[in-house]
Nucleic acid binder design. Structure first.
Length: 373
DNA sequence: ATAGGGTTAG
């Protein structure tokens, strides 16, 4: 036990000599020892565990490039002595832009859940996991705790929606309501996006009615955009149009969702009309908007219009076509018999055509009996 | 913390 505790002391000596620039002390030669943050982290952890928080802070503050390891050392080390400080430090770490790792995760899971008032760092970490697509971690962090605030509920719902845990999401929503939390815009967005995915117009319109009833107010554009999208995807273009006409503060996403919905329902001329109108109202289409119009043309057989749009993407709209745009345009050409033109588009592509491109092209050749083109 | 695209064949 004594021998064990000597190791950090030795490290402390080396550290002191290093930071004092002592010339008679031989400098550690390995990069691990000389890079500071490794030694520093061990020392921070050591002092914190010895309940010498002053020294832990001191060493910590002297580490020039603080990484997640030394933050974890300080946070984990001082938890037993001062849980509040530990939580404050966790917040500070997140604010300074350091991403948590699995060690931080277990700290937040095991330790901060013991302190009921510290949902903030837990939520912040959960949100980071959500953003990185680690939904399992988000759920683990938020589903096992006893008390959730509105933010925790919403982050949990978002994780379920994105992870395709649809029925779980509605169960959680039920539970959330039974604990007295009202649906807000974030809740609405998560649940409506699920309705679009599982084609549940009944659920979606019920939620719509609920949203009107609760009327949470701010940031309505987000909810209206998702409502608009939900209605087109669930087959009710009429309702989608009504949402669009009645909403104020439309943005690029509102327009794109509308155009896409019109194209999907076979109203390609209306879609292109809206595309024009959108430009007149000062909205600049982006890459997704172009996918919406090109796909619309592709599904409705408007070769000329689609090609005009594709050919003017770069020159007029300053958007570089990517692989998906090429797929849409090649299908537009091949599907309707313009094999020669499809071939010349392929040879002019700025990147290697992928298997999808070839399959579409060959299918066109097969269909139009033009294997020697 | 939340929103907009498509799925080629048979």
């Amino acid at each position: 036990m004594r021998a064990h505790s000597l190791v950090p002391l030795m490290l402390a000596l080396i550290w002191t000599h290093q930071s004092m620039g002592n010339s008679y002390m031989p400098k550690p030669s390995s990069t691990t020892l000389s890079s500071g943050v490794y030694l520093g982290s061990s020392l921070v952890s050591f002092y914190a565990r010895c309940q010498n928080l002053n020294n832990a802070y001191k060493i910590f503050s002297e580490i020039p490039d603080k990484n997640v390891v030394c933050w974890n050392a300080l946070i984990g080390g001082c938890f037993n002595e001062d849980a509040g400080a530990s939580v404050t430090l966790l917040k500070e770490m997140l604010l300074s832009g350091i991403l948590p790792n699995e060690f931080t995760f277990s700290l937040a899971c095991d330790k901060t859940s013991a302190v009921s008032s510290h949902s903030l760092p837990r939520n912040a970490i959960a949100a980071i996991y959500n953003r990185q697509g680690q939904f399992h971690e988000t759920k683990q962090l938020l589903s096992q705790i006893q008390y959730r605030d509105a933010l925790s509920w919403n982050i949990l719902l978002t994780a379920c929606a994105r992870n395709e845990d649809y029925s779980e999401a509605f169960q959680i929503f039920k539970q959330m309501q039974s604990e007295g939390f009202l649906m807000d815009n974030y809740t609405a967005v998560s649940l409506l996006s699920i309705c679009s995915k599982i084609n549940r117009l009944d659920l979606g319109s019920t939620l719509h009615a609920f949203i009107i009833k609760v009327n949470s107010g701010y940031d309505e554009v987000f909810v209206n955009n998702v409502l608009l999208d939900m209605y087109t995807k669930c087959g009710s273009l009429d309702c989608a149009l009504r949402v669009f006409e009645e909403m104020d503060g439309r943005n690029l996403i509102s327009w794109t969702a509308l155009i896409s919905g019109l194209g999907l329902h076979g109203y390609i001329h209306e879609a292109l009309e809206r595309f024009k109108q959108m430009g007149l109202e000062g909205f600049k289409p982006d890459s997704v908007t172009f996918m919406a119009v090109l796909s619309g043309c592709r599904h409705n057989g408007l070769v000329e219009e689609g090609m005009w749009l594709f050919n003017h993407m770069k020159s007029v709209y300053e958007i570089e076509p990517d692989m998906d745009h090429y797929v849409a345009v090649l299908d537009l050409l091949s599907r309707y018999g313009h094999i020669k033109e499809a071939e010349s588009i392929i040879s002019s592509m700025p990147f290697q055509p992928n298997a999808v491109i070839w399959r579409i092209f060959l299918q066109g050749c097969k269909r139009y009996g033009n294997l020697h083109c």
